[in-house]
Write a protein that binds this DNA or RNA. Structure first.
Lengths: 255, 255
DNA sequence: AAGTGGTCTAGACCACTTA
DNA sequence: AAGTGGTCTAGACCACTTA
């Protein structure tokens, strides 16, 4: 004889009563949100090993299957990383992640490479209306980071990065910034970049850019406008990258 | 008392004995491959409604849960599309899919739009060594499709598409080609484009391109090199798109 | 009302890692 | 040997669509 016919329906209603309900939110998505909230709140900082699935299922009062669906969803968004036999961990901005998730420039012949930072400057200034809108901030001040980056020994990237001054106190004292800037955001400021959207255009190099990149004025450059967001969707960073695409390209998979 | 302790282990070994085994392939991936094979073979053409999960599970001799994991994997790769309450269908190249999966150009102000084809020419010619290598073909001949496409009434895209002559017999008799060329591949030639990789660069417009796009010679253009693949990974199409990015951009999500 | 995919449970066992 | 995530089953019920 099967036991209680509507255990999960009761659980569903119990969870639903507590949260905002529009129509129907499955249990596993409610669990996913609860776990995401803990990660956002810093209860489980990046790199932390989560409790085992069995323990989490007990804590949350759901079956292991439901708990796994929640973890699967978080893993699909790269919020957590799972290793069979080892455990489940909050995702970190190590070099590998930066290279594969956030760096899309590759050599035509040699594929993906890590860029080397040859110059880096941090300036405090007032943000333009556009910048403050993109960062959704009410304060006036922003940090402006300017970098020159090289691949295969040649400067091919010029970056202009703008972030909220208030969110990154004393950023200028961290100079020279490490090559991996998202690791800095994460470790020094508790800010996790979770995803980004990019808009690509072709533009002409002005005299300054031409001098930096060692090309002629008016040469075509790939312009990449990136808006990066935190785990909760808050915009964190606005970045313009100008890229010389002779021997290099931006790689995009359509699937 | 729980019944047979190793039902699935037996099933696993039975399946394993039949197929190529390197280490360990889970049942659900074996089921996924079997279903993919049927789709590739044309047993289930695009648009077909698959049997219900219950029926498929019975046919394959696995539980509904395992069958669902196989379908989930196929749905993640957009090979099939599922609709709660309606059924599961083999994915089709309708306008929506083309717009969201394979067309990444959007208006800076108005977002995603469908391009309009203003000019389209199909020519038969010998493929270059590079083209034949990219298409992995041994024959000499290719079709070269040249199109001019407009967004918001302005020509901003010039496309040069190269496909295997042998795979698309009498393609020139289909002129004028429909706006959605992947739908043509699918319906007229039984060729399904499943995924594509793109390489983006910034280049200068030559005199012809400048004339077509209504810009000055030397203007920066976004060059998109696409290689599109069939369900089994075979390269199907090599495509060069040159794009005027004034008021438009290429959109890419990093996650 | 019947059929479909979607969720959830409880429990067994496997593959893999670490000690 | 013990612990972790990964697979698989059998079965119940829910949300949604169509007739």
């Amino acid at each position: 004889m099967p036991d209680g016919p509507d255990v999960k329906a009761l659980a569903q209603r119990a969870k639903a009563a507590a949260g905002v309900e529009l129509g129907f939110t499955p249990l596993y998505l409610q669990v996913r949100q609860k776990m995401l909230d803990k990660i956002i709140a810093g209860t489980w900082p990046p790199g932390t090993a989560l409790p085992s699935e069995q323990q989490l299922a007990l804590q949350m009062g759901v079956s292991q299957g439901t708990l796994r669906k929640a973890l699967d969803a978080l893993a699909a968004d790269r919020v957590i990383v799972r290793h069979q036999g080892r455990g489940t961990f909050v995702a970190e901005h190590d070099q590998r992640r930066t290279l594969f998730q956030f760096f899309k420039i590759a050599s035509d012949e040699d594929g993906r490479l890590s860029p080397e930072t040859l110059f880096c400057q941090v300036v405090e200034r007032n943000g333009s209306a556009e910048e403050r809108a993109k960062l959704a901030i009410s304060g006036r001040k922003v940090w402006h980071i300017h970098r020159h980056r090289a691949l295969k020994g040649r400067v091919v990237l010029v970056e202009d990065i703008v972030v909220d001054h208030a969110r990154f106190p004393l950023l200028d004292t961290k100079v020279p910034l490490p090559n991996n800037i998202y690791e800095l955001y994460e470790r020094q400021f508790g800010v996790t970049v979770a995803k980004a959207g990019e808009r690509l255009k072709a533009v002409s190099a002005d005299d300054q850019q031409a001098a930096l990149l060692g090309c002629e004025e008016g040469s075509p450059l790939l312009l990449i406008e990136r808006t990066a967001q935190a785990l909760d969707g808050t915009p964190i960073e606005f970045r313009l990258t100008r890229c010389l695409t002779e021997g290099f390209h931006y790689s995009s998979d359509l699937k």
